[in-house]
Amino acid sequence: MLVVEDLTKTFGANIAVDAVSFTVEKPMMIGVIGRSGAGKSTFLRMMNRLTDATSGRLAFEGRDVLGLTGRSRRDWQSDCAMIFQQFNLVPRMDVVSNVLHGTLGRRSTLATMFNLFPRDDIHRAIDILERLGIAGHGPKRAEALSGGQQQRVAIARALMQDPKIILADEPIASLDPMNAQTVMEALRRIHEEDGRMVIANLHTLDTARRYCDRVIGMRDGRIVFDGTPDQLTTGAARDIYGAGADFSEAATSTSIDAIETPAARALHEAEAIV
Rank of each mutant, 00 (worst) to 15 (best):
V4W: 08
E5H: 07
L7V: 13
K9F: 08
K9N: 06
T10Y: 05
T10M: 15
A13P: 03
A16Y: 04
F22Q: 04
V24W: 07
E25V: 08
M28W: 02
M29R: 10
G31F: 06
V32D: 06
S36I: 03
S36R: 02
G37I: 13
A38C: 09
S41E: 04
S41W: 09
T42K: 02
T42H: 09
F43E: 11
F43A: 11
T51K: 00
T54F: 10
S55Q: 14
S55C: 09
G56D: 05
G56A: 12
R57G: 10
F60L: 14
R63P: 00
D64M: 01
L66R: 13
L68D: 12
T69Y: 01
T69R: 15
G70Q: 14
R73A: 15
W76K: 13
C80R: 12
A81N: 02
Q85M: 05
Q86M: 02
N88K: 04
L89E: 01
L89N: 01
V90D: 02
R92Y: 14
V95I: 13
V95G: 01
V96P: 00
V96M: 14
V99F: 12
L100V: 06
G105A: 04
R107G: 05
L110H: 07
A111K: 13
A111Y: 01
T112V: 05
T112M: 15
T112S: 14
M113G: 00
F114W: 09
F114M: 15
F117Q: 06
P118N: 11
R119D: 15
R119Y: 07
D120Q: 14
D120M: 00
H123I: 11
H123P: 00
I128D: 03
L129A: 11
R131I: 00
R131L: 03
A135M: 08
G136K: 07
A144C: 05
A144W: 00
G147K: 04
G148P: 02
G148S: 09
Q150R: 14
Q151D: 03
V153A: 12
A154S: 13
R157G: 05
A158M: 09
L159R: 04
M160Y: 07
M160W: 08
Q161K: 07
D162E: 08
D162L: 01
K164H: 11
I165L: 15
I165D: 09
L167Q: 13
L167E: 03
P171S: 04
P171R: 01
S174D: 02
L175V: 02
P177W: 04
N179M: 02
Q181S: 09
M184T: 03
A186Q: 05
A186W: 05
I190T: 13
E192C: 03
D194W: 08
D194L: 11
G195P: 05
M197V: 08
H203K: 09
H203S: 10
H203D: 03
T207M: 15
A208H: 11
R210C: 07
D213P: 06
D213W: 04
I216H: 12
D220Q: 15
D226G: 04
G227H: 05
G227Q: 09
T228L: 13
P229D: 13
Q231T: 08
T233N: 04
G235E: 09
G235V: 01
G235Y: 01
A236M: 15
D239V: 09
G242S: 05
A243F: 02
G244I: 06
A245E: 14
T254H: 04
T254Q: 02
E260S: 14
E260C: 14
P262D: 13
A264W: 03
A264H: 02
A264M: 08
E271I: 11
V274N: 10
